[in-house]
């Protein structure tokens, strides 16, 4: 895995993961969808945690077991900041971007891991 791919992948997974956790909350769920949907929210929460955990992989691949987790912490903050800045202005685009990030990031992750 190249450095730039790892950076993009980690950022995409962190952003998508944070978006999952965020949109699972009633307050933010209602910014994108009209009605509450307990099943969808539960799914978003699980997917969010999963994506954040998977984002460790590209970091450790490039930076190793010691520095990788440090980079991951930094990427978590970056992902959350981007989301928090985008969400109040363009909630639907924020959600769409998360779907694209997860949808593109996961296959790439699988390809590079395999």
């Amino acid at each position: 895995m190249s450095l730039s791919l790892a950076v993009i992948l980690a950022a995409a997974l962190c952003y998508a993961g944070m978006a999952g956790l965020c949109l699972a909350m009633d307050r933010h769920h209602s910014q994108v969808w009209k009605a509450k949907a307990p099943n969808r929210q539960r799914l978003l929460r699980v997917a969010g945690w999963l994506l954040l955990a998977l984002a460790v992989w590209p970091c450790v691949q490039i930076w190793g077991g010691a520095v990788g987790p440090v980079v991951w912490c930094g990427m978590l903050s970056v992902g959350a900041f981007v989301l928090v800045l985008l969400l109040p202005y363009r909630p639907r685009i924020a959600a769409l971007l998360a779907a694209v990030a997860a949808g593109a990031g996961l296959p790439v992750l699988l390809l590079t891991a395999g």
């Binding site: 950076v7 520095v67 440090v70 980079v71 930094g74 990427m75 903050s77 970056v78």
Partner: peptide, 17 residues
């Protein structure tokens, strides 16, 4: 100085935060 350019940028942005 332990992780190359990306870590420097993360520190720069986190410091500005």
């Amino acid at each position: 100085a332990f992780g190359g350019h990306l870590v420097r940028w993360l520190y720069f942005l986190s410091g500005l935060a």
